[in-house]
C-alpha cells in the first residue's frame, strides 16, 4: 500500500533532519540548498535514503537535469529559454517552477527544490512504479 502524503512528509523530514542537520526546523517551503544548507554531495546521501525508505530508484537528474541545463537549445546567455522551461516542467512535474519562470536565470535553478517538491518527487516516482525515468 502506498504511503500517505503525511507519511511521506514525515519520512522526508526525518531524512533531511538526519542528513543535513539543519539549524532551523524543516518546513515544506524550505529550499534544500539555501534554507537547509545542503551541499552537492548531500544529494547522494538524500537520494540513497529516499531509495531505501520508499523502495525507489532515483538518479541525479531527478534533482538537477544536467542534460537540459547544459543544452544550448534550452539555455542561452545564462537563462533558460521558454523551451527549456517547458522541458524542465515535463521532466520534473513534481517541482514548483512558478517562481523560476519569472526569472529563469540558470543560477536560480540550483536553489529551487523545496521539501514539498521532494515529497512530490516521491509521490510521482511511486506512481510510476518506483523506477528511475
Amino acid at each position: 500500500m502506498a504511503p500517505s502524503s503525511e507519511e511521506i512528509y514525515k519520512t522526508v523530514n526525518e531524512i533531511l533532519d538526519e542528513t543535513l542537520v539543519p539549524d532551523d526546523p524543516v518546513k515544506p517551503e524550505s529550499t534544500l540548498l539555501g534554507d537547509l544548507g545542503a551541499e552537492s554531495i548531500d544529494f547522494l546521501d538524500i537520494m540513497h535514503q529516499l531509495e531505501k525508505s520508499f523502495d525507489l530508484s532515483l538518479n541525479r537528474e531527478d534533482f538537477y537535469p544536467d542534460d537540459i541545463l547544459t543544452d544550448e537549445q534550452f539555455v542561452q546567455e545564462g537563462r533558460v529559454t521558454d523551451a527549456g522551461v517547458a522541458a524542465l516542467k515535463e521532466r520534473m512535474p513534481y517541482a514548483d517552477l512558478s517562481s523560476f519562470e519569472n526569472d529563469p536565470s540558470l543560477k536560480n535553478f540550483g536553489d529551487l527544490l523545496t521539501v514539498q517538491d521532494l515529497c512530490q518527487m516521491v509521490v510521482h516516482k511511486l506512481a510510476l512504479g518506483g523506477d528511475a525515468e
Partner: peptide
C-alpha cells in the same frame, strides 16, 4: 550504493 558521483 554507488553512482557516477560517488558511493556510500
Amino acid at each position: 550504493t554507488q553512482t557516477p558521483e560517488g558511493a556510500i
